[in-house]
């Protein structure tokens, strides 16, 4: 195809000038994005505590930090926490997102209001959202009042949403899922808008029910979007930090600590930077796998 173009155009599509556009941003990210990662790996292989964090002459200890982390019972507890947390956020985000988009397809002022509301919630700072939910979930809060109306509990015997096992982990995860549903809704909504109207009308004339229309026409169109959204939601759930920090700070004990949060606690509450870095490196390895999936999915969608 390129060969058919005039010489001037071919040069326009050439690589070198375009590369100049990429350079500043790429350099910035190499310095403030990649270098920190290299530094992190170095720290994970060294004995770093508050004592020697200042000097960069850390003594290498090989994989010692990793073996200590993997043998630690607190770390062991954060792994199932992470799996449960990610699963809840993921399922809520995807299913809620799709359900929201389908519901918002219907016309009317109510759809408009709900859509606006959801986008606004999604835009609110996570600390604010985590804060209001923490308040709602207090023993005398709104959540227990509502549960009281349904006869689930009594005021004298409130549910301790952010204390009891497994309520604490579930509560933080569900609130986190609630916060990400609007994103899924927006993505699915845009994808549904791209479904050609003519095909739907033709199907309706052929007597296909809305459910059949959804399964046969819309669902195939949503599939590539779903794959990419799935990766994004997974990653969002996995690196989630703000809600845990604000609502429970990982507690009681480590019952709401996920692996990335545990890494933060090791580094900044215990000052065992080497161990914290080792945990962080483990999490980066997990997301690295997910990023390969993402690139493949995007590549497939763009046909590159």
């Amino acid at each position: 195809m390129t060969a058919a173009l005039p010489a001037g155009r071919r040069r326009w599509r050439g690589r070198h000038t375009v590369l100049a556009f990429v350079l500043p941003g790429l350099l910035y990210l190499l310095l403030l994005g990649l270098y920190p990662l290299v530094n992190l790996v170095q720290m994970s292989l060294s004995d770093v505590t508050a004592r020697n964090i200042a000097s960069s002459a850390w003594s290498l200890v090989g994989l010692h930090n990793f073996s200590r982390v993997l043998a630690s019972p607190s770390f062991a507890a954060t792994v199932p926490n992470t799996l449960i947390f990610v699963a809840i956020v993921f399922v809520l985000g995807m299913a809620g997102g799709l359900a929201g988009a389908v519901a918002l397809e219907s016309p009317g002022w109510l759809s408009q209001v709900v859509l606006g509301l959801m986008v606004f919630i999604w835009a609110m700072p996570p600390v604010v959202l985590g804060g209001i939910w923490k308040f709602i979930l207090l023993p005398q809060g709104l959540a227990n009042a509502v549960a009281g109306w349904f006869g689930v509990n009594h005021a004298s015997d409130p549910i301790l949403w952010l204390v009891w096992r497994p309520f604490a982990l579930l509560s933080v995860a569900v609130v986190n899922g609630w916060a990400i549903i609007p994103f899924g809704t927006l993505v699915y909504r845009a994808a549904l808008m791209d479904v050609p109207k003519e095909i739907l009308e033709a199907a309706a004339i052929d007597g296909a029910s809305p459910w059949q229309q959804f399964l046969r026409i819309k669902f195939p169109i949503l599939r590539p979007v779903t794959l990419i959204l799935a990766v994004l939601t997974l990653v969002y759930a996995f690196r989630s930090f703000d809600f845990i920090y604000v609502m429970t700070y990982g507690g009681p004990g480590v019952s709401t600590s996920t692996v990335p949060f545990y890494s933060y606690l090791e580094s900044f509450a215990q000052f065992r930077f080497g161990l914290g870095a080792a945990v962080a490196v483990l999490t980066v390895l997990v997301v690295a796998v997910l990023s390969v999936v993402y690139v493949r999915a995007t590549r497939g969608a763009e046909g590159g």
């Binding site: 019972p73 204390v163 009891w164 096992r165 507690g251 009681p252 004990g253 019952s255």
Partner: peptide, 24 residues
């Protein structure tokens, strides 16, 4: 001290029995 504090918290929250908390 921190190890004792963590188990103190776990016992009050009901995450751990006094026996297993103290053993740990």
């Amino acid at each position: 001290q921190l190890a004792m504090g963590q188990q103190w918290s776990a016992v009050i929250a009901g995450l751990s029995t006094p026996a297993s908390a103290c053993k740990a």
